Simulated scan of single mutants.
Amino acid sequence: MNLRTIGCVELNSVALGMHTADEMVKAAEVELVVARPTCPGRYLVIVAGDTGAVKSSVETGCAIGGDMVVDWFVIPSVHVGVIPALNGATPGVRIDALGVIETCTTASCIIAADAAAKSGQVDLLEIRFAAGLAGRAFVVMTGDVGSVTSSVNAGVAGVGDSGPVHSHVVIPSPSDGLKAKIL
């Protein structure tokens, strides 16, 4: 995917989430990237398109979702590594140091991943969200220790008010056993 704007609405209702996804697509010319339930009983909607359309779509989603909206964002010019990491389709890369940021919402994790990837020379390996994670999400990245450290710090800071960040870590030299489980 070319550099595009993405927007997200995360809700505390599957039924209202499906309705919100439908209305977001009808509100503006956007592509539906993700529309699916996550746990615990949440629903995640991610759209992509030009900035104005995505903003309009997310505004509609937040209005329809009302009190059930857990988190939301609009990210103009999302980093090219975010969408593949969301889909678990990151091409094979050499794992050096590992960085992990764990957040309390999927939306804040995507914000952290984008900020981390934009700030340093890291590869996003995966953005895992809310499947058996009690609503939490995490992003895993790799690169040299300095780049991973600075990217993790930027990702944590990038979450801002969307948070909170539950935890984060840099593993300078992961074991071969851990690397095998990540790949």
Rank of each mutant, 00 (worst) to 15 (best):
V58Q: 02
V58E: 05
E59R: 14
E59P: 00
E59F: 09
C62L: 10
C62G: 08
A63H: 13
I64P: 02
G65S: 11
G65N: 10
G65F: 09
G66T: 08
G66K: 14
G66F: 15
D67G: 07
D67I: 00
M68H: 13
M68Q: 12
V69R: 14
V70K: 15
V70A: 13
D71A: 11
W72R: 04
W72S: 07
W72K: 11
W72F: 15
F73P: 01
F73A: 08
F73I: 08
V74G: 06
V74C: 09
V74Y: 04
I75H: 09
I75L: 15
P76H: 08
P76C: 07
V78K: 03
V78Y: 09
V78E: 03
V78H: 08
V78M: 09
V80N: 07
V80R: 10
V80I: 12
V80M: 10
G81K: 12
G81F: 04
V82K: 03
V82G: 02
V82Y: 03
I83G: 00
P84S: 07
P84M: 08
P84C: 06
P84H: 05
A85N: 01
L86I: 09
L86Y: 00
N87Q: 08
G88I: 02
A89E: 15
P91L: 10
P91Y: 12
G92I: 14
G92L: 15
V93I: 08
R94S: 12
D96T: 05
D96Y: 15
D96N: 13
A97N: 02
L98T: 03
L98E: 04
L98F: 10
L98S: 05
V100L: 12
V100M: 10
V100F: 00
I101W: 12
I101E: 03
I101Q: 06
I101R: 07
